[in-house]
Design a protein around this nucleic acid. Structure first.
Lengths: 228, 228
DNA sequence: CAAATATAAAAGTATTACTATCAATATATA
DNA sequence: TATATATTGATAGTAATACTTTTATATTTG
């Protein structure tokens, strides 16, 4: 996909890093290669030492950018959700019809990720895989309430909120807009995971997309006929 | 809740333990106290050393029952899903009407957990909290395909399968029974988590239950009027 | 060119996730 | 009841992790 704006920058809570990784070449390499490496060996096996070896830098230098790998994961996830939010707003902004708008929104939120050439040092396809496989671990912790207060999840929350607003616009009387929005976003990640590892637990495959499934859920539960 | 059967035993894949924890007093204490401790300090902070100190036993003795804490988590989760499956089968077995049966099933799968006095050394309420907060971590790993082959997730898969069969009985033409079943089960865990930590992302609270929300989703998406 | 800043290298610490060994104790069986 | 066997406990040890600290060396900027 092509980016119409010259330079969009995803703004991330500055408490998530010690030094802004966008501010230097080393910082960008840390982000770029950590995405490849986490996707490759998984978050549990990923260490700053290994990353340092891969990018020809030192463990201690990486600690000058991120306090620990947990915060790096939160940074990467925030970037991903910020990028999705940007695409969501951009794609739905000019659609006046509430139904068509929600339909487009569900497409953006549930379709397979394609590369975005506007951000050269970030592979969005791999980042999407990381979010599918690792995002839950960033909030399923004993520190979640404290970190939520610090604003580590604002972008994600804003995104769910935007989607629930669109749901409300389609049907003002629907009693569960927030739950439906969170179910669509979290559920999409889960269905993609099941496609890869537990195919018997999902109806989705190469022919049936999660997008189709979630559109069916949304428009039936909102008692609106599905256009798609 | 009361158990009508004298002694039901949840059967768990014997590859998940080195020595059956049900076979000795120490084994039962390991299970009993690990549930309390994991719920208390979280799975990441939980270690066999700490558990040993708490139960007045030795780290090395615990290793004689479970290879590592990951397998203990898989054991606890299997027990939980096995218990839910037993309750599901028991509660729906004698219901002839497919709609009423599915409705009952959704209740069992999404309602707040109550203590089951039949299993004295297991606190089902705490175990439910562990499943909400930690279950994803048991499968979001690089070893998931291998462990799936070893049968570590059979009970969970059987449970999702039972629910999707009930969905099919309600509406044979519905194209996504497996996805709906997995969404209901996983989605319920997620909504409970959101109620505790991200209340703005869910429509559920003390008055609106996840059960109500998921019944609405299921019966509307299946184009059947909801009884509940 | 000097000063400030960024990065690299190396060493050190506490904790984790085990494994191995051996002693103590409980239990089963002859 | 004596003995064999299994179970548990105590201690020590190892490699890896997740850092922190210190010092040296580049690089940038004023």
């Amino acid at each position: 996909m092509k980016n119409l704006l010259q330079s969009v920058r995803i703004t991330i809570n500055d408490k998530l890093y010690v030094k802004d990784p966008e501010s230097s070449n080393l910082g960008k390499r840390i982000v770029e290669e950590s995405i490849i490496m986490i996707n490759d060996i998984g978050f549990e096996n990923f260490t700053f030492k290994k990353l340092g070896q891969k990018i020809g830098s030192n463990e201690s230098s990486i600690y000058r950018y991120f306090e620990n790998k947990h915060k790096l994961l939160l940074y990467l996830a925030s970037w991903y959700w910020g990028w999705l939010e940007y695409r969501l707003v951009f794609a739905t902004n000019n659609i006046p019809d509430a139904n068509a708008k929600l339909e487009k929104a569900i497409e953006i939120m549930t379709q397979a990720t394609e590369i975005d050439l506007a951000f050269t040092h970030i592979d969005e396809v791999l980042l999407n895989k990381i979010v599918i496989n690792e995002y839950s671990k960033s909030y399923l912790t004993k520190e979640v309430d404290m970190e939520n207060k610090e604003g580590y999840f604002v972008i994600y929350k804003r995104l769910v909120n935007r989607l629930s607003q669109m749901i409300k616009e389609v049907n003002t009387d629907y009693p569960y807009p927030e739950s439906l929005a969170s179910t669509l976003i979290e559920g999409a990640l889960h269905q993609y995971f099941l496609m890869d590892h537990f195919s018997s637990l999902t109806s989705c495959d190469v022919n049936v997309t999660p997008t189709e499934y979630f559109k069916h859920i949304a428009f039936n539960t909102l008692n609106i006929k599905n256009n798609g």
